[in-house]
Amino acid sequence: MSTDTLEDQTLDAAWELSRSVALRPESFGALAYHFGNRRLIFLKRRELVEVVRGLGDAPDARTALRRAGVPAEQWASFAAALRGLADADVIRPRQPAAEQPAGEQGEPG
């Protein structure tokens, strides 16, 4: 799988903030806390925080990036960051509402 494919997949997908995660605003960006695995993750750019917060309302990541005003030439690096956040379960692929498993999460974010 080439990097481009992975990047496109990330940008074309619909995402949302994991319901196990809370974001705490910090001067540099935000601190994400995962109530399930109890890990702290630092989002070191405010733009990234804005993108992450906008994912749930956007049809795909590209739209969230555009709405957050991120220049297109930076999308590749933002896609990589989103991929990292997905690996840490800070964000999750969004499923159609009807198919969302109910009561999966222990703690509200």
Binding site: R38, R39, F42, L43, K44, R45, Q74, A76
Partner: peptide, 23 residues
């Protein structure tokens, strides 16, 4: 486990932000 060591997710390619420790 609770927090062991904080992980950070930055933006390697566009990293202009100061290191986390400095923050």
């Amino acid at each position: 486990t609770l927090l062991t060591e904080p992980a950070s997710t930055g933006l390697a390619a566009t990293e202009r932000a100061m290191p986390l420790v400095a923050r």
